[in-house]
Nucleic acid binder design. Structure first.
Length: 551
RNA sequence: GGUCGAUUCGUCUAAAGGUUAGGACUCAAGAUUUUCAUUCUUGCAAUAGGGGUUCGAUUCCCCUAUCGACUACCA
């Protein structure tokens, strides 16, 4: 509320599993907002649910944010560990709520003392029974200003009994005492003014004696206050608890420093109804998680990183899913996003995720890579295919693995420079680096079979004669001189001039050659192929095909 | 059921009372090209419905419908 305060926002995930892309978006918006304002982005781990803790989830969350280029200013150190002891940079440590356990009870009891909360001794079983009962009567049981009068709590029980129960039992809780018939007036940075009557609220549990831990609501308010959070940017699922949170700030007397709230809409499934879930990814074949995740049962969920997405593309795509800059710009660096971001251009309605658009973003980012970067990214995939990259200067042309030299363990050797040049040629044709092999495998390994339909279409006595002549023409082309462009142009002109002078159909001749070079009648330009595989290899492939294929 | 929120092309979205309702993705057609892809051009395609307010509503208000979230000693 105080405009003089330094902007401080937090991302406060619960380590109950991998961070879903919707969670990444929430973190991203927090980060962009903080950086735009020159403020701090804090990471806090909300692990107050001892039952649902998943090992590895916390590390996964931090790794995911780092992959996305989102680095917390506070809460996580340079090594990526959640800070446990206070320091100048991390004054509010520890940042895991489970380690802040001693802090919360006093605040819950302060509320009881001031009449804003009470002790409740109903067992979970008793409450469950009430809920079942209400369900039968087609209504919903709510612990509120009416029902609390007939339940076991410090409002109904004698003082000695209350004291005895607190001391001798462990299943009691502290519940918030909602005020009667009070209009809670709230303001949301994205949604505007909202009003709710307090009678529709239930008396939420704030603290549980069983594990001596607060629930989300208490921990959240106390920590946001203690950590001097100025804006809370979180998912829409929290909007229904906003009145409670407002009431809590009031009960604590912290209204003057209450953060401002912004509730983000949800990410929806690409088809059908409902919010995006892990199942949709499996069903429709796209990741819903930033990084691959293996759950404790050994089940693997794919990640954007492992699927070959650039983090910049993923972040860019996510940023525009529910926000837009008001201009027609679609491609943003993180710096540009920070510069352009503002909460009042965040969309109120849910955004349906479109995997096609995600692919498009990646294609755009792939094209922004330099040839050298692409070559480096491609090499691991080439290695998998048995292509050896050597820096031996005597290798100016790759040694090809044709059928006759594809003996057991035979390797194809090539140079970094060759790969770089190939990447330059094929980058426009790919969405992912993982598409590269499919596009240019024939630069490294000669085909030993040919697409049947294409053979039928292009291989006959007539084309046989043409190819015989083309063989001579190709062998007459002088070996590489001058630049790559010049040489490719020379090959191209030599071939096309000859084809034209004979009044042959360009498509027929070229596609027959392509069939022999590639294995099918689609692929790169013939001149490019001859240049990259080399004249001798091109001739060899023609010989091999003509020898193998019956006319 | 109750509370709260949302509703513009298939999808992401622009237009914050006056536009032939714009852009992007996808899809289709054409051009280029030796094929495929790229590229370029063009096209298809929307204000959920009904009432108001207003000279004028995508925009403001109300109702309905639909969708979503929440309704735990989970976050």
């Amino acid at each position: 509320m105080n405009p003089d305060r330094k902007t401080r926002v937090r991302f406060a995930p619960s380590p109950t599993g991998p961070l879903h892309m919707g969670g990444v978006r929430t973190a991203l918006y927090n980060y962009l907002y903080a950086k735009k304002a020159g403020g701090d982005f804090i990471l806090r781990i909300e692990d107050t649910d001892s039952q649902r803790f998943v090992p590895g989830a916390e590390k996964y969350i931090i790794d995911s944010l780092r992959w996305c280029g989102i680095y917390p200013d506070e809460g996580v150190d340079a090594l990526g560990n959640v800070v446990e002891t206070p320091s100048e940079r991390h004054p509010h440590a520890p940042y895991r709520q489970s380690q802040r356990k001693p802090i919360y009870r006093q605040y819950a009891e302060q509320l009881v003392r001031d009449g804003y909360a009470y002790y409740a001794f109903d067992s979970p079983q008793e409450l469950e029974a009430r809920r079942k009962e209400a369900e039968k009567a087609k209504s919903t049981f709510t612990y509120n200003h009416i029902t609390r009068r007939e339940l076991k709590n410090s409002l109904t029980l004698p003082q000695e009994e209350v004291k005895r129960l607190i001391e001798t039992t462990r299943t009691w809780t502290i519940r918030f005492k909602n005020p009667e018939n009070e209009t809670v007036k709230m303001d949301d940075l994205i949604r505007g003014h909202i009003e709710v009557n307090s009678d529709t609220l239930d008396d939420k549990v704030l603290w549980k004696a069983a594990d001596e831990l607060p629930t989300y609501h208490l921990a959240n308010i106390v920590d946001d206050h203690l950590m001097e959070i100025t804006e809370v940017i979180r998912g829409e699922e929290w909007l229904p608890s906003l009145p409670l949170h407002y009431l809590l700030y009031k009960a604590f007397g912290w209204e003057d420093t209450r953060p401002r709230f912004a509730h983000l809409s949800l990410l929806l499934k690409p088809d059908g109804k409902g919010k995006l879930s892990k199942r949709d990814g499996d069903r429709l074949g796209f990741p819903v998680f930033p990084l691959q995740w293996t759950n404790p049962e050994g089940e693997i969920s794919r990640g954007y990183r492992e699927d070959g997405y650039y983090p910049e593309a993923f972040v860019n795509m996510l940023a525009l899913l529910g926000w837009n800059p008001g201009t027609e710009q679609e491609l943003f660096t993180m710096e540009e996003l920070i510069e352009a971001f503002s909460l009042d251009r965040v969309i109120r309605s849910g955004a349906r995720f479109n995997p096609e658009k995600a692919r498009w973003f990646n294609q755009e980012y792939l094209r922004k890579q330099t040839d050298e970067q692409l070559a480096r990214q491609f090499i691991p995939l080439l290695t998998e295919k048995g292509i050896v990259v050597t820096d031996d200067p005597s290798f100016t042309v790759p040694r090809h693995s044709g059928p006759e030299n594809r003996s057991e363990g035979a390797k194809v050797e090539t140079t970094f420079g060759f790969i770089k040049a190939v990447c330059a040629l094929i980058k426009e044709r790919a969405h992912f680096v993982s598409d590269f092999w499919e596009i240019c495998h024939y630069f490294f390994i000669a085909p030993d079979s040919w697409n049947e339909a294409d053979v039928k279409k292009f291989w006959n006595p007539e084309t046989g004669k043409m190819i015989e002549k083309m063989y001579e023409i190709i062998s007459g082309i002088p070996t590489a001189e001058g630049s790559q462009e010049e040489h490719i142009r020379l090959i191209e002109e030599t071939l096309t001039d000859y084809i034209k002078s004979n009044e042959w159909k360009m498509g027929t001749v070229m596609n027959t050659l392509r069939l022999f070079f590639v294995g099918q009648s689609k692929g790169l330009g013939i001149a490019d192929i001859i240049y990259f595989i080399g004249k001798e290899e091109a001739l060899r492939r023609i010989r091999y095909a003509m020898h193998s294929l019956p006319v």
